[in-house]
Design a protein around this nucleic acid. Structure first.
Lengths: 217, 217
DNA sequence: GTATGTTTGAAACGTATGTTTTGAACACAG
DNA sequence: CTGTGTTCAAAACATACGTTTCAAACATAC
């Protein structure tokens, strides 16, 4: 990351700063000065700040969703049974392992995702849904086979709950670690949290259905 | 909300706008013009924009945490057994029912909380933790009695996971409803989602422990 | 009615932001 | 060398923001 081109230096720096301080709170001047490039370079290479944000996500998500697709192919080819543990395990190992040389990278990206998802107006949310919805649905289909007793709509929501638990927790890891440290005198890593997450998610996803769900207006 | 005083008109409007567009993306001018008050009124009555944000949270959270404390008193007095369903049920009914005259209000506030928690630098997160941490710990203690086999630290994280699932889902309800509608042709309300959430959370919180948790640096 | 303290209104201030411009530096083909 | 397209650098631009100012309006008590 030292002598990379202007474009990559911008992307690297923007990724970190966006995760640290948020989109609106990170100015182009902060990015360009820390990256050691000229202010105008962002608009020259990306067109606008919003395009920069999208580019940051694309650079991370495209390889990730491709890797996820490949893992699902593998799973189907090898006849691995569809259990919640297997399906969620793939995602978890992938999220933590796509950038083994930089263990911080995954945490940075979860923070980014958290911000993208909690942006109320939801540009990015829609963008993610349209561009990476296919792999997502494939994943959901595997989960459905793993818990056939859970109705599809219920599973849809449970997957959203899981997403929330994951992104929310890992995006706030820094603060949460401080609390955990003061309460338990113990440090935790992203891998540690993920290991704790898995049983929780499995338990939630395959929970028995409530007796009846009434729909109101 | 029609003829309220300046302070309340500001708070009402700010609450809605912050939830809709975020803190940084909502200008004082947008708030004051929509509230029909002068721009300077915010700085006059609250001192600064950040103080306004805190005031919005305080106005909602203080009654809520008081009500939660009362419900816990009630539970202890009546000898209601500490089960995950009972404890989580209290919170859920409270979150949905504190403002029965305005069902939108709860959703608005969840969106607010989502933004507060995902703000990376975490002023608000710390503020919430220090001001309302006591009730929170009390709740966690009840949960601990409900699932004595789960070690305290594990429970701590599971509560965080649950918080993530709740806030994340309800803060993104609007977008998620759109997806759900297109996938299932079905509409859902906040109460509906909450009813789906409960079994998920109960399943996650009382999930069996993984065989062993190694701690890494 | 006058005086006093509080609240509002309109305008201005200083600053930070995203973006645009213009020209120099550079790489490379003819 | 000359010309051409690309990248970079410095400066300026326009705008939006939070905040401050100061006088007018108001309420309340004496």
């Amino acid at each position: 990351m030292a002598q990379a081109g202007t474009v990559d230096r911008i992307l690297d720096t923007a990724e970190v700063l966006f995760a640290q301080k948020g989109f609106a709170e990170t100015s182009l001047r902060a990015i360009t000065s820390k990256a050691g490039v000229n202010l105008a370079a962002v608009n020259y290479h990306f067109g606008s700040k919003e395009a920069l944000i999208q580019a940051v996500f694309e650079r991370f998500l495209t390889p990730f969703s491709a890797a996820l697709g490949a893992k699902l192919d593998e799973m189907e080819a090898s006849g691995t049974p569809d259990t919640p543990e297997n399906v969620l395990g793939i995602v978890s190992r992938l999220a933590l392992g796509t950038h083994p040389q930089d263990p911080q990278r995954a945490a940075t990206f979860f923070r980014l995702s958290g911000q993208a998802y909690s942006q109320p107006q939801g540009h990015l949310r829609d963008y993610l849904h349209t561009h990476y919805g296919a792999v997502f649905k494939r994943l959901q289909a595997h989960l459905q086979r793993a818990v056939p007793d859970v109705p599809p709509m219920e599973l849809f929501w449970r997957v959203q709950f899981s997403l929330g638990a994951v992104i929310f927790t890992l995006s706030g890891m820094q603060s949460l670690q401080a609390i955990s440290r003061s309460d338990f005198n113990l440090d935790v890593s992203a891998a540690d949290i993920t290991r704790r997450l898995l049983p929780f998610l499995v338990g939630g996803i395959q929970a028995p259905m409530p007796d009846q769900l009434k729909v109101e207006s």
